[in-house]
Design a protein around this nucleic acid. Structure first.
Length: 574
RNA sequence: CGGGAUGUGGCUCAGCUUGGUAGAGCGCUUGGUUCGGGACUAAGAGGUCGUGGGUUCAAAUCCCACCAUCCCGACCA
């Protein structure tokens, strides 16, 4: 492709509303433009890269036994009502009505759609397993779109859904897709870590997220064990248990703690370390109240708490509700003598003689003990793991990182097939629910993550597999016929060879602009025709990734470039 | 939705405190000179100052409302 014939509106400065490096570079390199908040247009170069990611995904999904199909974007309300997600997704969905008033939504995901298809078409175990996938535009009216393609409201997603006859089948399918995911991201040049995850709103049991470590652009907090490799999303992360405290139980005492409400204040006022206090938090889960207890120096993880009760909605109780239920204000509430369900963190259960609110404004209780003074209904892990906590598998201190979630896999089991009554006839002649899995990859986000991982202060450094072009020819002076003629020759020769080549044939810009644009665009190899060529017929080939420059004779350029490209592909495939 | 900020040619921004003419750099158009790291030169084009209302002889500037965008939090590929 000739530069003058395509459309690459590069920007010298990044538009102000871009924050992330990848977002800035995508705008500056002319890959995309914003249409509205969280809604983007792809321009020719951006589209080429996007298509390459899609192609890699297709190849690996097909290899893993996936069957591509395409569901509609517009989905009828009815199937969502069946699973209850019309309300659960709620405001996240873009909803619309047709002229007759029938309600629809723009699909935020397609579990309902596939199950609806499967229950009508798959009837026998003989037709299983089946894995369907599509690459399609999804719509989620995000509370807060941000970071360009990282969190968009309209985005491309590859979503796959598997149907198996039994758990062993699902296990096999899950592993196949899991491995396909590893290869997909590897081929895109991404360094991903599969982490154990919570299954969230989608439902199900086992789930993994594929994350790219990025402290800046990452939105997913996860723990990582540098020794054994244990990795888990903060919502699913475990840590080794705390040690049982010993000592005799002391008699409970009510002490006055005027104006001391936060853990910090109470700890200072009583001169007792935070880890000897217990934080009491009143929550409302699907309309029911739960008092959650965590150690004073810990933080509650709402998702863990919610999952514990199989809840759908969770929110802290209002000040008024707190007052009504405990008789005290937030800051003075505690587990002793209240008539609510109590969920204590495992660490709290190891504590002796601790401090809690007294359910009376301005007072706390000291020397409180579980079993004697109150009994929690459940004792479970509901705290956030912190950096330095010990790995649950090998005892090494854990690291805390942020990552970009580029993909997620779930073992759904029968959550959806039951709700939508999707059954098949098994070997034994009995009707059974499909055992399902679902698997997503954010295509645009993957592209953004690639740029996030491969850039320098000059611009993008595309891995060859997803670069818009493999090589860029840069004739520095188009009015010099020796140079432009040579460029033209190489351009045609490269194309004939099947290489994807871009030639910066602009006549009206100086060498500086061409160099800067080339570095910004990040095509892996630059073939520079200018001074060195005029002097001794040598062409300079620059590797954008390493910055390495090699002078090559004209008649050897093609082979040299070809070899470099092959090497680059091989490095991503190994 | 809570907190913070911004809105002025295509892009980055100044002007607003103290009301009176809309500005700069980059980009764009035309001609000429240049041609290895965002060149030089001459002449040009281009703006409802986010929208609506108010105050005033007069509003980009002061007041009110709304909208949009971005950042921090709750949600998620």
């Amino acid at each position: 492709m000739r530069f003058t014939e395509t459309f690459v509106p590069t920007l010298r400065e990044a538009p102000q509303d871009a924050e992330l490096i990848s977002h800035k570079l995508m705008l500056r390199a002319g890959l995309m433009r914003k249409m509205a908040s969280g809604i983007y247009s792809f321009l020719p170069l951006g589209l080429r890269s996007l298509e390459k990611v899609k192609k890699i995904i297709r190849e690996e999904m097909d290899k893993a036994g996936g069957l591509e199909l395409l569901f509609p974007t517009i989905l009828p309300k009815e199937i969502w009502v069946e699973t209850g997600r019309w309300d659960i997704y709620g405001n996240e969905m873009f909803k619309l009505k047709d002229r007759k008033g029938r309600e629809f939504c723009l699909g935020p995901t397609h579990e309902e759609a596939v199950v609806d298809l499967a229950r009508g078409e798959l009837r026998s175990y003989k037709e299983l397993p089946k894995t369907f996938y599509q690459i399609q535009t999804k719509y989620r009216d995000e509370i807060r779109p941000r970071f360009g393609l990282m969190r968009a409201r309209e985005f491309l997603m590859k979503d796959a859904y598997s149907f198996d006859a039994d758990e062993e089948g699902l296990e096999k399918t899950y592993n196949k897709i899991f491995n396909a995911y590893k290869r997909i991201f590897k081929r895109c040049g991404l360094t991903t870590i599969p982490i154990e995850a919570d299954s969230g709103a989608i439902g199900g049991k086992v789930s993994h997220e594929f994350v790219v470590i990025s402290e800046k652009a990452g939105e997913s907090d996860f723990v990582y064990c540098p020794k054994c490799g244990y990795a888990a999303n903060i919502e699913a992360a475990k840590s080794a248990d705390a040690e049982e405290e010993n000592g005799e139980m002391q008699p409970v005492e009510k002490v006055s703690t005027p104006n001391a409400k936060t853990i910090e204040e109470v700890s200072n006022f009583l001169n007792i370390p935070k880890k000897k206090l217990v934080k009491s938090l009143l929550y409302k889960i699907d309309g029911e109240f739960v008092l959650a207890l965590v150690r004073g120096d810990d933080e509650l993880n709402e998702v863990k708490l919610k999952n514990l009760f199989g809840g759908k909605f969770i929110s802290p109780a209002s000040e008024e509700e707190v007052k009504n239920l405990t008789g005290a204000q937030v800051g003075s509430i505690g587990p002793v003598g209240v008539n609510v369900k109590i969920a204590a963190d495992k660490r709290v259960s190891k504590m002796k003689n601790f401090v809690t609110g007294a359910n009376e404004d301005g007072y706390h209780l000291i020397n409180v003990n579980i079993g004697r003074d109150f009994t929690p209904q459940v004792v479970v892990d509901i705290r956030n793991v912190k950096a330095g906590d010990l790995c649950p598998k090998c005892g090494t201190p854990l690291e805390l990182h942020k990552g970009i979630e580029v993909g997620q896999t779930f073992k759904l089991g029968t959550v959806y097939s039951k709700k939508m009554n999707a059954k098949f006839l098994d070997k034994d002649g009995k009707e059974k629910y499909f055992i399902m899995g679902c698997y997503g990859i954010g295509v645009g986000r993957t592209l953004a993550a690639v740029i996030e991982e491969h850039n320098d202060k000059y611009g993008i450094k595309w891995p060859v597999s997803v670069a818009p072009y493999e090589v860029e020819i840069i004739p520095l002076n188009m009015s010099d016929e020796d140079i432009s003629g040579t460029a033209e020759f190489l351009y045609k020769d490269f194309e004939k060879e099947g290489m994807e080549v871009l030639m910066d044939d602009r006549n009206d810009v100086g060498a500086g602009v061409k160099f800067n644009d080339a570095d910004l665009l990040g095509i892996p190899l630059q073939v520079i025709i200018g001074r060195t060529f005029k002097k001794d017929r040598k062409i300079e080939v620059k590797d954008r990734e390493s910055g390495e420059k090699t002078l090559v004779k004209l008649n050897e350029v093609k082979e040299f470039v070809k070899k470099k490209i092959t090497e680059k592909y091989n490095a991503l495939n190994e």
